[in-house]
Design a protein around this nucleic acid. Structure first.
Length: 691
DNA sequence: GAAACTTCTT
């Protein structure tokens, strides 16, 4: 390559004979223009006839150097008029860059010239440009100007509709095309038609297209086969997809990727991984899309080791810095309970987008890293990305976990400014969050403001009363819910209600509500319900009854139920049942064993001074290297936000939170103070002086 | 010398 560059000297080139003749020279100019000075490049271009410039333009587009293509086109435009051949190329660049204004300028220019204006190549390029810039109305207008449209023009419009998410219109347009006389249906238009069917999950239509393809012998094209593969993959017809895939004579990375994704999304984790390995073994280099699909498999299957292997492979292919791949890696590590690895990937991702931030933020919350999640939010806001409703719910879960009222207030204000105030999930989370941060008034005020309360909203408020020990209020609210709102309670509503009864010591009412749930609403109780009822019975010393209750459970595999029973045994010194519950807990000990239960069991023995047993149980804790999760406190003194910190890491985490409050504060004052004065006045009074 | 199409991210 270097040799070629040396051979090309711009000065001598200008005087050489036949200098414009070969395609090679045009290519060289296109490539070389990166390295030679602007002045020399400009002089060269001024002397080059249009056909060579067109070749340069085309080669720019082929190499996806669209900006350079447009700047060359602009220069051409200033000195001479562009011709039939340069316009489609320039429009392609506009489409790729979504440079609508530039495209419009080219459009108005071509309208002035009769020959250009009626040219079908120009027409399709215009339709495509408008469609890719999201201006479908303009796109259609151009199409309607052509009285004799060919297959490509029709296809461009159909593709435009499909890519703008207007698949119904794409299909309607296709049926118009099929009816219109003399328009040839070719494999390319069918690709877009099948894609539209995929978007609409319109399996019937998709299959009839497949039938048509077979009848007409159009099935050899790779994009069409891939589109059909995707149709079966997305609609869950795994066997159809597999048969089609097997029968394909030619397969590219898209075919493999689609099949891997099909298995990944339809419970075929093993097949997905096997296929991925087979693809790699056949020398087909995994691209970002294939990697993402297989990483989703690892995530869904909690296959950390496989995930790490794929990560290494991605790194070898140089794709680990790709933001889509990084995001999939973060999600995979988070899903496999490996947040440190996820954080490492996050740190190394050079250009993070909103989705990447979201993946990290949500992953932190799901891995019980509340403080870190707030740190991520801080950086996210600093990078100009705003949380969506799902993120907001997660952030509020973190605020709940930390019990930080001031931050909740701040974030609440911010959520309103983000336009998330009306979101029912966010509102329900706010109710829970205010309640968990100690402000039942805050929770009730949110609840009061929501007009259309759904079951989540009602359940959240029931839970809020429960947290504050207001069992009677919860029962009254439940009464109002079933009598006046028309909203039917679900399993979660009963968890909240039962827990409210339990916290308030309303044993009889709790049992009654459990009965209402099972026999009245015919809802199947889960371990949470059983746990609460066992706890309720235990509170009034009905340990034997609780034991009978546990024995009646359909699935007796949840440690929390046995833990609740064990807790009652400790209070009421029932060593016999404690023994049974303790044994069961050790037996059920899964990956998320909590040392707390073992400590509880050892305490039962300690009360009766059975020191041998105490030592045995404590030995188990040592042996399994379990740690009891230590508690933390957050204290608010006056207007100051203080986290009660245990070590350096917590100190750092607290700073995250306080910084976030400061950032949110700044945003509110600068950008939104006019539109929401009341909220901002309230925030003015919050003094933030961390640690 | 020129135009349309396929897999994937929280």
């Amino acid at each position: 390559m270097l040799q070629k560059w040396k051979m090309f000297n711009p000065t001598t080139f200008r005087h050489s004979k036949n200098r414009y003749k070969t395609l090679l020279t045009a290519k060289l100019i296109a490539l070389q223009s990166r390295f030679i000075s602007n002045q020399i490049a400009r002089n060269l271009f001024d002397e080059i006839p249009q056909n060579v410039n067109n070749r340069i333009l085309k080669s720019y587009c082929r190499d996806k150097r669209y900006k350079e293509a447009l700047s060359l086109f602009s220069r051409l435009f200033s000195s001479e008029k562009p011709d039939l051949y340069s316009i489609p190329a320039a429009l392609k660049a506009c489409a790729a860059l979504k440079a609508l204004d530039f495209g419009k300028a080219i459009h108005s220019f071509s309208k002035k010239d009769g020959q250009i204006g009626s040219n079908l190549f120009v027409g399709s390029a215009l339709i495509d440009m408008y469609a890719k810039c999201g201006a479908m109305d303009e796109s259609l207008r151009v199409f309607e100007e052509y009285s004799e449209s060919d297959t490509v023009l029709w296809t461009t419009v159909i593709t435009g509709f499909e890519q703008n998410g207007r698949s119904l219109e794409a299909l309607a347009f296709f049926s118009r095309m099929a009816m219109a006389e003399g328009v040839v249906i070719d494999p390319v238009v069918l690709v877009s038609v099948v894609s539209a069917c995929v978007q609409l999950l319109e399996l019937k239509m998709g299959r009839s297209v497949h039938g048509y393809v077979i009848r007409m012998g159009l099935g050899s094209g790779l994009p069409l086969s891939n589109a059909l593969l995707n149709l079966y993959g997305k609609t869950g017809l795994v066997n159809y997809a597999a048969r089609l895939f097997e029968g394909m004579e030619e397969k590219d990375v898209i075919s493999w990727g689609s099949m891997i994704a099909c298995y990944a999304h339809h419970g075929g984790a093993e097949e997905s991984l096997v296929l991925f390995d087979e693809m790699v073994a056949r020398g087909i280099e995994a691209n970002a899309v294939a990697l993402i699909s297989v990483l989703q498999t690892c995530e869904a299957n909690c296959s950390l080791d496989e995930g790490k292997r794929i990560h290494e492979l991605a790194a070898r292919n140089g794709l680990d810095a790709d933001v889509l791949v990084s995001t999939a890696l973060i999600a995979m590590y988070m899903g496999c309970s490996a947040p440190d690895e996820a954080a490492e990937v996050f740190k190394r991702t050079p250009e993070k987008d909103a989705v990447c931030f979201s993946a990290m933020l949500r992953g932190c919350v799901e891995n019980e890293r509340a403080c870190e999640s707030i740190g991520v939010l801080r950086v996210m806001l600093g990078s100009g990305f705003w949380p969506d409703a799902f993120d907001a719910v997660k952030i509020l879960a973190s605020c709940s976990e930390l019990g930080v009222l001031q931050q909740t207030r701040c974030f609440h204000g911010f959520a309103i400014k983000c336009g998330l105030g009306g979101d029912s999930f966010v509102s329900a989370s706010l109710v829970e969050c205010y309640a968990k941060c100690g402000s039942l008034d805050g929770a009730a005020s949110i609840f009061g403001c929501v007009k259309d309360r759904d079951v989540v909203m009602w359940s959240s408020m029931l839970a809020a009363y429960g947290i504050h020990g207001k069992g009677r209020e919860a029962l009254a609210l439940f009464d109002e819910m079933v009598k006046n709102s028309g909203v039917r309670p679900n399993e979660v509503s009963f968890v909240s209600l039962l827990s409210a009864c339990s916290h308030a010591g309303l044993v009889r009412e709790g049992i009654e509500m459990f009965d209402l749930m099972v026999n009245g609403y015919k809802l199947a109780p889960n371990s949470k319900h059983y746990g609460i009822v066992v706890d309720l019975l235990g509170r009034v010393g009905e340990v034997e009854k609780a034991m009978g209750f546990v024995n009646g459970m359909a699935d007796c595999g949840d440690p929390s139920v046995w833990g609740a029973l064990l807790g009652s045994c400790r209070v009421h010194r029932n060593e016999k049942i404690a023994e049974i519950a303790g044994r069961k807990l050790v037996e059920l000990d899964g990956c998320d064993a909590d040392a707390g239960y073992y400590v509880l069991l050892s305490n039962v023995y300690a009360v009766d001074e059975k020191w041998g047993e105490v030592a045995r149980v404590r030995g188990l804790v040592e042996e399994k290297k379990m740690k009891k999760v230590s508690g933390r406190s957050v204290v608010e003194v006056g207007d100051e936000v203080c986290s009660f910190v245990a070590n350096d890491r917590h100190c750092q985490e607290s700073n995250h939170i306080c910084d976030l409050v400061r950032i949110l504060h700044g945003m509110m004052k600068e950008e939104f103070s006019c539109s929401f004065p009341d909220r901002c006045v309230a925030l003015e009074s919050v003094t933030i002086d961390p640690l």
